[in-house]
Design a protein around this nucleic acid. Sequence first.
DNA 1: TAATTGGCACCTAGGTGACAACAT
DNA 2: ATGTTGTCACCTAGGTGCCAATTA
Lengths: 505, 505
Amino acid sequence: MQGLSSRAHAFSVEALVGKTIKRMKEENGKDSSSLGDTETETSSNRQETDKHDYPNDQRRKAGNTPRRLGDCESEPGREERRRPGDSDSNPGREERDVRVELQGSDLWTRFHEIGTEMIITKAGRRMFPSLRVKVRNLDPCQQYYIAMDVLPIDSKRYRYVYHSSQWMVAGNTDHSCVAPRLYMHPDSPCVGETWMRQVISFDRVKLTNNEMEDKGHIILQSMHKYKPRVHVIRHDPRLDLSKIPSLPTEGMASFSFPETEFTTVTAYQNQQITKLKIDRNPFAKGFRDPGRNRGVLDGLMESYPWRSPLSLEFKPFTLQLQGSSCGSPGNCTSPLKSLFPLSCPPTSHPFTLSSFSCPDTSLHSFCLPLCCKTSPFSPISPLPARPYPSTRRYSPLPPLLSALQGKKAPGFSALCLQGGVPGHPPSLQPHPYRALPLTAPRGDPAPHYPHRSHPDPAPPYCLYRSSLSRNAHLTAFSCHAKLADSTTDCLLRQTPWNTTINHCL
Amino acid sequence: MQGLSSRAHAFSVEALVGKTIKRMKEENGKDSSSLGDTETETSSNRQETDKHDYPNDQRRKAGNTPRRLGDCESEPGREERRRPGDSDSNPGREERDVRVELQGSDLWTRFHEIGTEMIITKAGRRMFPSLRVKVRNLDPCQQYYIAMDVLPIDSKRYRYVYHSSQWMVAGNTDHSCVAPRLYMHPDSPCVGETWMRQVISFDRVKLTNNEMEDKGHIILQSMHKYKPRVHVIRHDPRLDLSKIPSLPTEGMASFSFPETEFTTVTAYQNQQITKLKIDRNPFAKGFRDPGRNRGVLDGLMESYPWRSPLSLEFKPFTLQLQGSSCGSPGNCTSPLKSLFPLSCPPTSHPFTLSSFSCPDTSLHSFCLPLCCKTSPFSPISPLPARPYPSTRRYSPLPPLLSALQGKKAPGFSALCLQGGVPGHPPSLQPHPYRALPLTAPRGDPAPHYPHRSHPDPAPPYCLYRSSLSRNAHLTAFSCHAKLADSTTDCLLRQTPWNTTINHCL
DNA sequence: TAATTGGCACCTAGGTGACAACAT
DNA sequence: ATGTTGTCACCTAGGTGCCAATTA
């Protein structure tokens, strides 16, 4: 019955054909950098067995039964059903030779030290970091499923206390009746050799708080603590992959890692977590400090002898900007950085040309922006005069503003608000209808309260530095006004190459 | 040895758990609309057999051997090795019950009538249409691989004759030594029931002409005729999916479809093919006629009582635009459409306000664009005066222009070029350094030679209608100048809400 | 001359945190 | 007062045909 081993068979087929097909699964995010890391040394001193631990009468088809985990280098063991509560990397007797090693442990640890939070949403949210492991000591030619699930740490509900930056127990969980779900790695089933050759990434798994979710996402409760768990399951060829039960019963080994514990949230609680996520998750790159990306454009701008394109009389802008307005101290020699702080005093005639002042005199040979300003036109729906509203509540918008609400005015580098609520001091939110460049408050901020020496009775204004738009191919900065209304003049400065526009609504 | 059937076992596991996991494979492009189309009626009158057609001594493990294709409703047949040349949907005796039906046959036929071409590239190019099939009469609980490959129609090399719009034999193929590759469907292996329940799409397969390609793409020779082929292969659990040979040998049925024949090209030859591809492939949407998408924004614009924001003296733009400039005839009442043709005469003073004329008088109450124009500044690197160059060759660019070449100036709705090569008539490419909005030449073109009644000695100009940018959230049109140089004034009109900017380089 | 290549704008598709609105 | 949700700008990732440049 034994004759040629199945492994020898596999090799004979390979030899016969002399060519293998690499399965195309770019979507699995396999770490191709580990391809050279072949670990097939356990293929010697294997021993086979007809014993198996499948339940009831299925043994009759055992001629091709998958061998037990650990068969390679251990005596056959009795059936053992592993259950929640398994200790980290400590499988039972039968599976003790299988090793699962967490990848990216450093990053996990950095999060763990702060207190890892994972967002859960109705539609499902990926984990970051994602669970990535390497598996060792599998039978190279045995087929395995590899899967993960997420176990609750306890039955407590938690609450984040901002004051102490800590998670506190806030009561017991109101048990949900949703059975825990198993997320099968999309490569499953696959032979041990292939599993061991690569980093196994569960980056596609999604967490949700929607108990009715029907796309296989892992269902969790918010404000609870959990720990993900990896399962290595021998492949029973009689079971379709799509029919694997949510909790396998036998022939499996499970592993978890203390540093992967996390608390579920619907919005981040600890800002250090937010910061670390933004810093490390490529998809959150748009929220990173824009200052760090200016070097490229700086270089481009400085590499060319810019001249003034205008034969115009400039009315120097007399606002004196604070030192901080030039970006990081000592970098004021960068023309680009100096260009950011740009404001424009209101005037009564249709067009006003303004420039800006900056201690860097080289600026004048660089680029003289042209500002066109129109006089405010009669508002379509005058804004009510009222005190500056809370940061959470806003009044309904006039019709035009409603139509424009949330729309994007792309392609501009800086937004200068003139106007606002009378009597309200300049601030990050000078206007009841938010008109913030969305990226402004993040890192390397523009001057929030620039020093004003201008004698004009100018209304409050606010100027923000915008972020570099990385997909603008270095031709333009982008700045986004979530809303501008008919009583507010918006001066938008477009692209680093001396273009300005007048934007009035 | 037989006892409970494997199918019964599968169901018992399902019953035990009462819950199945839907395998998450969004990337396979499964047609979920066919989920309700369950076809398991062949699960009755099954008969089992121990016979199998695996070669040599592997029979010793046959207790769980996959059953032969067609076992369900036919007598066991002898081993039969199917080979290239199988006729369409006409499998041999053993597999005659398996049916494979082409999906999207209508689209394939439309291409076939013209003469389907498939682009092949070094990096690999997807097919469009992609091969999509439904499979019938599989054993619901038997595991199968489903794969495809591409067979040459003949040993001829072809050449497209534009004159007659036909493909002609251009000689015999210089045989390449690359073994044909099999593309395994990423769901493989999977039980028959699951395969039959869905449309099986090979949309991820890629065609390449790179014989050294190592990512499993199908390698073909350009200017040859091919026909794709689908294989249904019984799963041998002892073989890893990743080790399936490039040409399976036994236990398989193959199918192909005459309308899926195609000719490989590196660039489309027949423009009707290009047009049909653009029209049907969602990824080519950017090349479709921009006119058809204007309706939404039209509605938004018309829903609001726009007024002139400017208390300025307007100098009406005296260019009379041709009828075609208003988009499709009879639609001139749409303010938005009328806004597209916008040009601006050059002037010698720094600022000029211009509007545009249009037979639609309602326009005046809608939006009066403001155009600011600066006088040209002294060019940093003067362009050589020379005749209009060929459409294929361009001179090296001055440093600044080189730095800007190919960069994008986002967020603008229309591009008006003023300037150009003296003596060169207006055309689609009025300037030696291309300054075309990329989308302009495609369908519903702007007037290339608008009727000019303006008396000014204006240099040649060119105006293009830009396409609606669908990801601009209806706030702006985008127009892209591949290059503008210091001797060319570009007038850019931004967003439908009466904003214009002056862009000079 | 004809075929191929590489870069690009423009899409599809979908993963981020921010934020206001909503729900409890 | 606090937790949740929906929308958005901004990303990543990658599939299109176009086009000029290159190659054969």
